[in-house]
Design a protein around this nucleic acid. Structure first.
Length: 423
DNA sequence: TCTGGGGTCCTAGGACCC
DNA sequence: TCTGGGGTCCTAGGACCC
């Protein structure tokens, strides 16, 4: 048993809705002459960069996302190369979200082109799962002009894996109880979270299919891969074992970081160019912080050299910021300290994290003071545990002082501890 | 093949505190 | 002079996803 998070006692009905060749399909809406042709979205054929999306016609030639554009051009010379249009995709994504909202109040956009719906208990409104899915399909086409695929299962994992099997433009329902049989013949790579590295490790153990994985001892997986191994064992059975998958659908989590980065068209060692780039990236990050009303405490520089070696260097500020100048100065300091002078740079990036919504200095100090008091109390408790009740006098004295503080400023009492433990 | 940009989560070591 | 056990925070790197 993986005991950390109890599985729901009832059977859930989860939909995973995945838009088909999303970026390509959106481009086709704007230029119908692209329809049916080999199309590559992401940039021009001679540019530095990778494929964001490929049409099904282009995929026939082996082109796939994340492939370098130049490689795609060699494999499929007749392909039409299109620059990406993020605003168009965001706009369409909102339309998708709206359509999905008419089917369930519990909708969660997992990325720009896919979503989870908890459809548990919607039978009276929408009928059985397959009927609801076909209705969704039609309403999606009518509302957005786009095709999607729908996977249905008792967990997020099963829904996600089955939507991939349903592509393109299909629906696949995995009947409750048949999860393991459905997964068994699939490549381990089909399990979300199993990438190239984990695949190699599993192959070394003779594990190629999910069925092979399911027949391994859970304890062996745990020994070999730690926390991940345990989750993996559950996934082989179709369970949302551990991590993000185990969360309720629609419980939206705020952003944890905001970043921008830039890859030069040609590598360069020109300092003034680097500082100008860092300035621009800092401005972009700061603007988004202000838009989302976040203040960031940690600023990170990302630096990639010509040979692709990449370093990150971070610094936490005494008080959080959303100002261009403060971010830029931090990132410039980090850059000056860490750049191997004269070495050619390929990419620069700026990231902000450790968000608070309260920039207020006074509140922050109060928070720190309170934290120290909490620490002191906890320390006293530990002392008491160790040395017995004779040391309780110390602890009581502290509690007294703490109580006074609470009366001074009752509003600031509630714990700001947000344990992000999802396992 | 010559490798984008925007994210999330996990691990591991060291500093620091009690 | 040597000896512990925990906890939290910070930082760096890496796997993975779309």
């Amino acid at each position: 048993m993986s005991a950390a998070v109890p599985m729901p006692a009832f059977t859930r009905t989860i939909f995973h809705v995945d838009m088909d060749a999303f970026f390509v399909s959106v481009e086709e809406l704007f230029d119908p002459s692209l329809k049916g042709k080999a199309v590559v979205v992401g940039g021009q054929r001679d540019e530095r960069g990778v494929v964001s999306a490929a049409s099904y016609a282009a995929r026939k030639f082996g082109v796939h996302s994340a492939m370098p554009l130049r490689t795609a051009s060699k494999m499929c010379p007749q392909a039409i190369f299109v620059n990406g249009h993020p605003e168009r995709y965001r706009e369409c994504s909102e339309k998708v979200h709206k359509v999905l909202g008419t089917f369930s109040p519990q909708v969660e956009m997992a990325s720009i082109d896919e979503a989870y719906l908890d459809m548990t208990g919607t039978e009276r409104l929408h009928g059985p799962p397959l009927k609801a899915a076909h209705a969704l399909h039609q309403r999606m086409k009518a509302g957005t002009g786009l095709n999607c695929s729908v996977g249905i299962g008792t967990s997020r994992l099963i829904a996600k894996v089955s939507s991939a099997q349903a592509k393109p433009n299909g629906v696949l329902y995995i009947v409750p109880g048949e999860e393991a049989q459905f997964l068994a013949p699939l490549d381990v790579r089909e399990i979300p979270g199993v990438g190239k590295v984990m695949e190699t490790h599993l192959h070394a153990l003779g594990v190629k299919k999910v069925g092979d994985l399911a027949s391994l001892e859970e304890s062996e997986l745990a020994d070999r891969f730690g926390k991940w191994g345990l989750a993996l064992a559950g996934k082989a059975r179709g369970e949302d074992a551990g991590g993000w998958f185990d969360t309720e659908v629609g419980a939206d989590v705020g952003a944890k970081s905001i970043s921008h980065e830039h890859t030069y068209n040609e590598d360069t060692a020109d300092v003034s160019q680097h500082e100008a780039t860092l300035m621009r990236l800092s401005e972009m990050v700061a603007r988004r912080l202000r838009e989302s009303q976040f203040h960031a405490r940690t600023i990170q520089l990302k630096l990639r050299y010509k040979d692709f070696t990449t370093i990150t260097r971070a610094h936490s500020l005494p008080s959080p910021t959303q100002l261009d100048t403060e971010i830029f100065e931090q990132v410039r300091t980090l850059f000056r300290k860490n750049w191997k002078k004269g070495a050619q740079i390929r990419l620069l990036g700026v990231q902000a994290s450790a968000f608070t919504s309260q920039p207020d200095q006074i509140n922050l100090l109060e928070g720190n003071r309170q934290q120290r008091w909490k620490d002191a109390m906890a320390a006293a408790d530990r002392l008491r545990d160790k040395f017995g009740e004779s040391s309780v006098g110390l602890a009581t004295g502290m509690r007294g002082s703490f109580r006074e503080r609470i009366h001074e400023n009752p509003a600031s009492l509630p714990g700001k501890k947000k344990k992000t433990d999802k396992s």
